[in-house]
């Protein structure tokens, strides 16, 4: 069974350096280093985290802020190599990106779709041919040539979901974007998600919404200070997490 894992993380750790004085400007840093105050501290964002993600599984990560959730996402997305341990990823990854934030607001919806596709490794030419279908699915045909600074948050989320799920990825990485658009659109996107999962896509999910995690996830890991506190069935893990948080 685990031979087919799409993500296999073995004892991964991540260390990074940070200046103890926490200065933010170069000027302060120079002054501090003249005074001999620049000591660096080794911080562990993650230590000895192991897990596997199976095809068709919805894998969720929960934990308080600073627990290492987003660092773990960066490692799965292959943006950040782990300091220790080993992670292997089989298959294609599609991250859900807030289109408005990272992309330039002056760009049109069409340009954003093409750029997103190219970023995740598809051909620009292919993406140009896909724009019409993606816009239609997101119900944004009339706005696709408008700059995205004119889009509402809901429109951006719809386009982001439509482009990320345009081809079925082996792993869909979702970072706190669950409710997309109005009720009808939410049903449509959750149908698409379900059919992708049935077809074998895995979903890796980070969320602060424990209800959403309980409802969607098949497997949950609870991180705290970079360590796995508990892993297993969502009901159990979320319940224990809730009671430990003093809720």
């Amino acid at each position: 069974m685990s031979d087919r894992a799409v993500v296999r993380a073995e004892q991964i750790s991540l260390a990074y350096r940070i200046g103890k004085s926490q200065t933010g400007t170069f000027k302060e840093h120079m002054i501090d280093s003249l005074k001999g105050n620049t000591t660096y501290e080794q911080l562990w964002a993650l230590s000895n985290v192991s897990f596997t993600v199976e095809p068709g599984q919805v894998f969720a990560v929960i934990g308080p802020n600073g627990a290492g959730k987003s660092t773990l996402m960066k490692i799965i997305a292959q943006v950040l190599p782990p300091t220790g341990g080993r992670i292997r990823v089989h298959g294609t990854i599609a991250p859900m990106i807030e289109l408005g934030a990272g992309f330039n607001a002056e760009m049109t919806g069409r340009e954003n779709v093409v750029l997103y596709g190219t970023l995740v490794g598809r051909e620009p030419k292919v993406m140009r041919n896909r724009v019409a279908d993606i816009a239609a699915w997101a119900e944004l045909e009339d706005f696709i040539d408008a700059p995205i600074r004119n889009y509402s948050t809901g429109m951006l989320a719809r386009l982001g979901f439509a482009v990320a799920t345009d081809t079925r990825p082996d792993i869909l990485v979702v970072d706190e974007v669950l409710a997309v658009g109005d009720e009808a659109f939410q049903r449509k996107s959750s149908d698409r998600m379900t059919s992708m999962i049935n077809a074998g896509s895995a979903v890796v999910l980070v969320s602060h919404s424990l209800e959403a995690v309980e409802r969607l996830a098949d497997y949950v890991i609870w991180l705290e200070k970079g360590k796995v506190v508990m892993a297993g069935e969502p009901e159990e893990v979320v319940e224990t997490y809730r009671s430990s948080a003093g809720g």
Binding site: I12, P81, R86, I87, H90
Partner: peptide
Amino acid sequence: MTSDSDARYDSARRRR
């Protein structure tokens, strides 16, 4: 199909 040798990404693989 998805044996270790054809992992698309393996952090153990060296990057030059």
